[in-house]
Amino acid sequence: MSGGPNLPSAQIAGNPPVGEHGALSCGKALKFSPEARKRVDHLLTRYPTKQAALLPTLWEAQREWGWISREAVDHVAEVLELAPAFVWGVVTFYTMYNRAPVGKHLIQFCTSISCHLADAEGVYAECRKRLGDLKPGETSKDGKFTVIEVECLAQCDKAPAVMVNDDDYAVITKDNLDSFLGGLK
């Protein structure tokens, strides 16, 4: 789920001026590729309503485009016959749908209680520092890394736990931080 064109959202045509709100535009109308559309059609066979396929369909959209743009919302709403506002409401309820492009490696630090007891906040801050003083959620200049904080990853025995894109990483400390980052190409 990493990737997507890593444009700073301000450069994307059609985005609302500063101070405005809502889903960011990717600048062009979107449509599922035939393969993605086939997967969505298969999803629809697994539920009694179209609406129920919304979460998995949004996953498909994120897989396809890297993040959920205004146009992705429009397309998903059309495919599932839902109101776009409803779809955007769902997107914003869940934390895992990216609402702006992210780096190639989306590094997610758990800072919930068990990881907190293992100084996860410290490692999280250190990681951002080493990648060039990134703010929380900022993407590095080379477009490779976005570092964010997440809640419990259900790996409390491996604290501090980290997830990079879809993969789990165990016990990331200040000591092994460099080798961890070095392993992300």
């Binding site: 109101a83 506002a85 955007w88 409401g89 914003t92 309820f93």
Partner: peptide, 15 residues
């Protein structure tokens, strides 16, 4: 629709 959740929840239209 409701947008965001918890203490940040607001009501808005789709952009």
């Amino acid at each position: 629709s409701f947008i965001e959740r918890g203490g940040h929840t607001i009501v808005w239209t789709h952009e």
